[in-house]
Measured scan of single mutants.
Amino acid sequence: MSIQHFRVALIPFFAAFCLPVFAHPETLVKVKDAEDQLGARVGYIELDLNSGKILESFRPEERFPMMSTFKVLLCGAVLSRVDAGQEQLGRRIHYSQNDLVEYSPVTEKHLTDGMTVRELCSAAITMSDNTAANLLLTTIGGPKELTAFLHNMGDHVTRLDRWEPELNEAIPNDERDTTMPAAMATTLRKLLTGELLTLASRQQLIDWMEADKVAGPLLRSALPAGWFIADKSGAGERGSRGIIAALGPDGKPSRIVVIYTTGSQATMDERNRQIAEIGASLIKHW
């Protein structure tokens, strides 16, 4: 067993022997301040990774656009098919120029040779490549099948209805392509620590998230040296922004954090800054 596999296998073990965790309302004060600064709703939840206990939450059962955070769930569904012998990570998928959609920095470079399922998941999570996500959605049967996968996990809230990039439209009061912070946090925890996926697939999923290259201005910008984070960000229309993450000190994750916002007129930089400040408060009061 590799060191990384050992780390993920012992996530519940280490967490069980940690000192009790206590909620700190100071972080919620910052979440509410972010709402004021952005002029928009902000949803927040913080779960203990081992027990699933909610440590703090704000608007945990209000719907927010998922945006690209759905790509972690998508690759979880792909990995479940791999575990069941219905898919192979090494299978190569070929596609054409007509398949390319807006923001496809990886797939646009491989029109000639195609990409493997493993490479597509890596591109979808680490670079948020939209064509990679659409190609992977095709392998599982489309958005409705991802929703069905989530329902089978016990998540009857999260739903995907459309493809990239239309799913980022974020129309107010439109339930399409949305989740709730509580539902997303619980589902992410199941994917990373539950028995739904094999140990190898859980490790692969967290490795992809740990290698995320496009979430630097968010929670990662607030992390002290030595902290662990595996995350996936999302951005959408109407001032929408979000991030889902597993993080913790001492090089291992111990909490799940989900943050979503929508309806702001603020710039992307300002949305990023507010999420980073929430992260800084979380870490300060850990």
Rank of each mutant, 00 (worst) to 15 (best):
H24C: 04
H24L: 07
L28C: 07
L28W: 09
K30G: 14
K32G: 00
A34T: 05
A34V: 11
G39L: 11
G39I: 01
A40K: 03
R41E: 14
V42F: 00
V42A: 01
V42E: 00
G43P: 05
Y44G: 12
Y44C: 14
E46N: 10
L47E: 11
L47V: 02
D48A: 04
L49M: 09
L49S: 14
L49W: 15
L49R: 12
N50G: 09
N50P: 05
G52A: 01
G52K: 07
K53N: 12
K53G: 04
L55M: 04
L55E: 01
E56W: 12
E56R: 12
S57C: 01
R59V: 04
R59E: 03
R59Q: 04
P60S: 07
P60A: 02
E61R: 06
E62S: 10
F64V: 13
P65R: 12
P65N: 08
P65W: 09
M67I: 08
M67R: 04
M67N: 09
S68K: 13
S68V: 03
K71T: 07
V72Y: 11
V72K: 00
V72R: 02
V72S: 04
L73G: 08
C75W: 08
G76H: 05
G76C: 12
G76L: 03
V78M: 01
S80Q: 07
S80D: 14
S80T: 06
R81G: 01
V82E: 07
V82G: 07
A84Y: 09
A84I: 11
A84D: 13
A84K: 13
G85F: 09
G85R: 02
Q88W: 13
Q88N: 11
G90F: 14
G90N: 14
R91C: 09
H94W: 13
Y95S: 01
Q97I: 08
Q97D: 12
Q97T: 09
D99S: 15
D99Y: 13
L100E: 15
V101H: 02
E102C: 12
Y103L: 00
P105L: 09
P105K: 14
P105A: 05
E108A: 06
E108M: 15
E108H: 11
K109V: 12
L111F: 10
L111K: 08
T112D: 04
T112F: 08
T112Q: 06
T112V: 12
D113L: 08
D113H: 10
T116I: 07
T116W: 10
T116V: 07
R118S: 15
E119Y: 15
E119A: 14
L120E: 04
C121R: 09
S122Q: 14
A123T: 00
A124T: 08
I125K: 11
D129G: 08
D129M: 12
N130C: 09
T131E: 13
A133R: 03
A133H: 03
L135C: 01
L137E: 05
L137Q: 04
G142D: 01
P143R: 07
E145L: 05
F149S: 11
L150N: 10
L150P: 03
H151S: 10
M153H: 11
G154N: 10
D155L: 09
H156W: 01
H156S: 04
V157M: 10
V157D: 02
R159H: 14
L160V: 07
D161G: 03
E164T: 11
E164G: 11
P165K: 01
P165R: 04
E166G: 07
L167C: 05
L167T: 12
L167V: 03
N168T: 12
N168C: 10
E169S: 01
I171P: 09
P172E: 07
N173T: 10
D174P: 12
E175D: 00
D177I: 05
D177N: 04
D177G: 03
T178D: 09
T179Y: 15
M180D: 00
M180K: 00
M180E: 07
P181G: 11
A182F: 10
M184I: 01
T186K: 01
T187A: 04
L188Q: 09
L188V: 05
L188P: 04
R189I: 04
T193H: 11
G194T: 03
G194L: 10
E195S: 12
L197A: 11
L197P: 10
T198K: 10
A200M: 05
A200C: 02
S201M: 13
S201K: 06
S201W: 10
S201F: 14
R202P: 07
R202I: 09
Q203V: 13
Q204I: 15
L205R: 05
I206G: 11
I206D: 00
W208V: 06
D212W: 15
V214A: 05
V214R: 04
A215D: 15
A215K: 10
A215G: 09
G216T: 07
L219Q: 11
L219H: 12
S221V: 01
L223N: 09
I229N: 02
D231Y: 05
K232P: 13
S233I: 08
S233W: 08
S233Q: 12
G234R: 04
G234H: 02
R238S: 05
G242N: 13
G242H: 04
G242A: 10
A245I: 11
A246E: 13
G248D: 05
G248Y: 07
G248K: 08
P249E: 10
P249Q: 04
K252M: 04
K252N: 01
S254A: 03
S254K: 15
I256D: 15
V257E: 02
I259V: 10
I259G: 06
I259C: 08
I259Y: 14
T261L: 04
G263F: 04
G263I: 00
S264T: 05
A266S: 15
A266I: 15
D269A: 14
E270Y: 15
E270G: 15
E270W: 02
N272H: 08
N272E: 03
Q274W: 04
Q274C: 04
A276F: 07
A276T: 04
E277Q: 15
E277G: 14
G279N: 14
S281Q: 14
L282S: 11
I283F: 10
I283C: 15
I283W: 12
